[in-house]
């Protein structure tokens, strides 16, 4: 067997009405690797997960998961993978313990083994106190944790997590992050995670593919991706747009690239730290001192911006509690 947990070749998924959700993507995930699909809503992340987890058939191309073809052998794949979809999948009329027990039984555990496994997982996700309450009464964070534990029941070697922290507060998000990290590092599980949060991909993943409008636009480790931007990023804010435009002309000799949005000027500069004082003096001399100024190494958002021409995270729409560097 190859040492690849997932091999995807020229995968295409078209929905009714000729909606191309995935346009010809190819990638591989090694065994034990933590791989993230980063992209905005509607980029094709969930569709990719649904194809890889046997919920949807591909329109063309092939996907092999754990050595089995998704179209030819879906039942073998289902035994090997754990999946937490974007929307939690739980029956609110059962208790947490009952759901875990049932899940284990459906994967072929005997009654006593299922009982043991349910208890183990309840302890793992810190839900023993609420284990015998109906899931309908759980909070959003508890549901997420239970949903995650449901996909671990049969000790899968490959985990698919579709935006596992969307809508969670920082406390629950960190709990899930820790959990996923442990699964990857301690138990060697291969992880395929999708996220629209830069921070999440940056913090967790060994390797990232950026997906936009059904296509993979960049792949690599977080460091490699940031290096493709190659420069420092200087963000300048002015009183008005005219000042920002004038500043752009004045600073032309230093910059490799720029973006202008209203009063904000973003510059891509080699060795920004060295030239910054000189640039500020020049702006002062022209009578257009910036209101604020920020020098930063590139982030994944800059990578995204460079390859797609758009920001991934709108300002004010960032994940709660994430402090951007």
């Amino acid at each position: 067997m190859s040492d690849h947990a997932i091999v995807v070749q020229n995968l295409v998924k078209t929905f009714k009405g000729d909606v191309k959700a995935i346009k010809d993507i190819s990638f591989e995930v090694r065994e034990g690797e933590f791989f993230a699909f980063l992209g905005p809503n509607g980029a094709g992340k969930s569709t990719t997960i649904q194809v890889l987890t046997t919920l949807l058939n591909p329109t063309s191309g092939s996907a092999v998961v754990s050595g089995f073809n998704v179209q030819k052998d879906p039942f073998s794949i289902r035994r090997k993978i754990g999946v937490a979809l974007q929307e939690t999948g739980i029956d609110p009329s059962l208790t947490g313990r009952e759901l875990l027990h049932l899940q284990a039984r459906l994967f072929g555990f005997s009654k006593s083994d299922a009982k043991k496994r349910a208890q183990e997982l309840l302890e793992l996700i810190n839900l023993t106190d609420d284990a015998d309450r109906k899931v309908g009464k759980y909070s959003g964070g508890m549901r997420r944790r239970l949903d995650l534990s449901l996909c671990l029941v049969h000790r899968p070697k490959i985990l698919f997590l579709d935006e596992p922290t969307t809508g969670l507060d920082p406390y629950n998000r960190n709990a899930i992050w820790d959990e996923i990290r442990t699964l990857n590092r301690q138990f060697g599980a291969t992880i395929f995670l999708t996220t629209q949060y830069l921070e999440e991909a940056d913090q967790l993943a060994d390797r990232i593919s950026i997906i936009n409008k059904g296509e993979i636009v960049a792949s690599g480790t977080s460091q490699q991706l940031k290096k493709t931007v190659g420069m420092d990023v200087i963000e300048l804010t002015f009183h008005q747009r005219e000042d920002a435009e004038k500043a752009k002309d004045v600073l032309e000799p230093w910059m490799k690239d720029f973006r202008l949005t209203n009063e904000e000027l973003t510059l891509y500069v080699d060795n920004g730290a060295i030239f910054l004082p000189e640039m500020v003096r020049k702006l002062d001399g022209e009578g257009i001192p910036p209101v604020s100024l920020n020098l930063a190494p590139p982030t994944l958002d800059d990578v995204f911006l460079r390859v797609t021409g758009d920001h991934l995270e709108e300002k004010g729409n960032r994940q709660e509690g994430v402090v951007s560097k």
Binding site: F75, G89, I90, L150, C151
Partner: peptide, 16 residues
């Protein structure tokens, strides 16, 4: 209800 609360998909993801 299973379809709406996502449990139907959860079941489809098992070998049931």
């Amino acid at each position: 209800q299973d379809l709406e609360n996502g449990y139907f998909s959860r079941l489809l993801l098992t070998p049931t």
